[in-house]
Design a protein around this nucleic acid. Structure first.
Lengths: 152, 152
DNA sequence: AAGATAAATATTGTACGCAATTTAATTTTT
DNA sequence: AAAAATTAAATTGCGTACAATATTTATCTT
């Protein structure tokens, strides 16, 4: 009758969920690998690129605001932002109105980098070798799940 | 006629591809967050859990074999495996046939942990709060893309 | 206004992830 | 068989992630 009870469960293959979670984890790292050679040319890492993307959208933001958009806390951001500052891509300045706040803004060099960066999306797509259709499907389902999991 | 040329492109929103890549990156970290409290009870991390999953499938494997399944190299695995050894979950032994190879096997404690671990998938699913349908869709598209990107 | 609380970053410590190099053992060449 | 090439792990070094704590500044309470 195919009724499975406690005994024997441990011989099952790992569940679909485990597999999917691993796949997402693997894909995320895989994507970073594909970005690497492209971003190497600009001498930045993938998380640094994401940070710049956010800053290109809005020139001046607090560490907190960046963290909310990137889902990263100060423990990760502070050292990364210092590295971006060292590269001369951003400026870090205490807010005058509230001395607790550190405001991040683009340097001239950081703003200019945008011109070079505009070629990245195409290069990455070519590197990943996937269709817009697949990309679109991925986007839909991942965002849907991301939206749900962020709450619970 | 809506023909967009070079000028003005830099004012566009970040492309779909950038967004999707960020979403995958964010989801991957989000999943790890949901695993954390569950795995904390077993005093292991998510990558360590993945490693144990592979070992529960096949009791004894070389570092290389583990790396091929997890897509990790010795630079990541060696220290992680040492930590698993310190926790008493695995054993690390040089192969007699080929002294270059280090064979990883489960300790008694590591084998036993499987019994506790079998509750994890359900707990995680409950925590993520997503349907099997969504999980299934995610699995399909992510694996499809992962398969393609691994080659190119 | 003094003291308590809260908020924003920074710091500390641990664990990946991965490129690059090193070390040791095995194979292949010559 | 000696030298060269290859292979498997380990090591080194850098950059995230993230929990936990500390520090500094602002705000709230009374």
């Amino acid at each position: 009758m195919e009724k499975r009870t406690g005994k024997g469960m441990e011989n099952q293959l790992p569940g679909l969920d485990s597999q999917v979670c691993f796949s997402v984890y693997a894909l995320s790292r895989q994507i970073t690998q594909h970005y690497r050679p492209i971003l190497d040319e600009l001498d930045i890492t993938y998380p640094q690129y994401l940070t710049l993307l956010v800053l290109w959208e809005k020139e001046r933001q607090s560490v907190n605001q960046l963290g909310e958009k990137l889902y990263l806390d100060s423990g990760t951001l502070t050292p990364m932002l210092k590295r971006l500052e060292q590269k001369g891509l951003i400026k870090r300045e205490r807010s005058i109105r509230d001395e607790r706040v550190v405001e991040i803004s683009l340097s001239e060099k950081g703003s200019q980098l945008r011109h070079l960066a505009c070629a990245i999306p195409q290069k990455l797509l070519a590197s990943l070798n996937i269709t817009r259709e697949e990309l679109s499907q991925l986007h839909l389902i991942v965002n849907k799940i991301l939206g749900q999991t962020r709450q619970s």
